[in-house]
Design a protein around this nucleic acid. Structure first.
Length: 311
DNA sequence: AGCTTCGCCTGCTTGC
DNA sequence: TGCAAGCAGGCGAAGC
């Protein structure tokens, strides 16, 4: 095999850094605003147990936060039980604030929204614009999701994270707490990093990057890295923090709400680099399948567990 | 209970 | 050129 492979780049999916970027841009746009009306076209985009999106009418946005990979919009002053609107972007979901002004952030005129590079091959609006929230005297918020892997949830704040299966993220965990979560687990560490109930916010791209920086082979069992949780957690935070500073990763189509590209792709050391040389040791980056997900690692820097060493 | 596999859904890429 | 199959991926459900 000569030279780097032209791999079929996936679009980057919204993980913790991308969602954090969205939250930071969205907050100044809608905080303090009151919802005039809200509609969701596709019923199947509701997470089970959700109230109708229309029920957020007359609620005021009290804050915009992130829980794992989910956007959490805290609401008040509306109907009883309407305390949270949660937007999970799945893999191709986006929030768009067309024509927003003030607050500084997502300034995207409708014309701009229409002319942005298509997302997963699809322009904004049209049949993929499933949700729409109109604020009193303020902007609109669109929910666009071509592949419909995302979800919305409207309901009470109580027990929200349990209900949505969102565990603590790497910034919320202590090394001790994370050790406890890995204890006795036989699943590969890669699978556990992707398991949002175990640790939230990490998806396929950052899982591979974090394991590379931690020098851990993706097939090592959770139990076997339990002692090295300190390193794993520190590396996770470093990678995620840097990615947030870069406004996330844009491999192809991902854009922040104000239409900019992320730039962390230039920092990726294993993901989407199959067949290329490791920048640290020169070995060729390999790609295997773990837990059904494409998994990239450096065979030089991430030594295989004994059981998997044969390959 | 823990772990793996499947299927959802759509658009792009690959292969015939 | 056109069409079908394959693939990607978060995550819940089903299966082991």
């Amino acid at each position: 095999m000569g030279g780097p492979q032209e791999s079929n780049e996936e679009d980057s999916v919204p993980e913790l850094p991308e969602v954090e970027t969205v939250v930071r841009q969205l907050a100044p746009c809608i905080e303090g605003r009151t919802v005039r009306r809200a509609t969701l076209r596709a019923r199947d985009l509701y997470r089970s147990g959700s109230l109708s999106l229309a029920s957020v009418r007359a609620s005021r946005v009290e804050g915009v936060e992130r829980a794992g990979k989910a956007i959490v919009i805290r609401l008040g002053g509306g109907l009883p039980g309407v305390e949270m609107l949660v937007v999970h972007l799945g893999m191709t979901g986006r929030v768009v604030v067309p024509g927003a002004t003030g607050g500084g952030m997502p300034v995207m005129e409708p014309a701009v929204a229409g002319s942005l590079p298509p997302f997963a091959g699809v322009a904004y609006g049209g049949r993929h614009r499933h949700g729409r929230i109109v604020f009193v005297g303020g902007p609109e918020l669109w929910y666009v999701d071509p592949r419909r892997f995302g979800y919305l949830f409207v309901g009470p704040a109580d027990g929200l994270r349990d209900r949505l299966h969102i565990g603590p993220d790497p910034f919320e965990l202590t090394a001790r707490a994370m050790s406890a979560r890995l204890r006795g687990r036989k699943a590969p560490i890669k699978s556990l990093l992707l398991n949002q109930r175990v640790i939230s916010g990490i998806g396929n791209i950052y899982a591979d990057e974090i394991l590379y920086h931690a020098g851990m082979h993706p097939l090592r069992s959770g139990a076997s890295v339990e002692r090295d949780t300190g390193i794993l957690l520190r590396r996770a935070r470093t990678v995620l923090r840097r990615a947030i500073q870069h406004r996330g990763t844009t491999l192809r189509d991902y854009r922040t709400p104000d239409g900019r590209r992320g730039s962390f792709q230039s920092c990726l050391l294993v993901y989407a680099r199959e067949g290329e040389r490791c920048r640290r040791c020169g070995a060729r980056i390999r790609k295997i399948v773990v837990a059904g997900r494409g998994t990239h690692f450096c065979p030089g820097c991430q030594r295989a567990p004994r059981r998997a060493r044969a390959r």
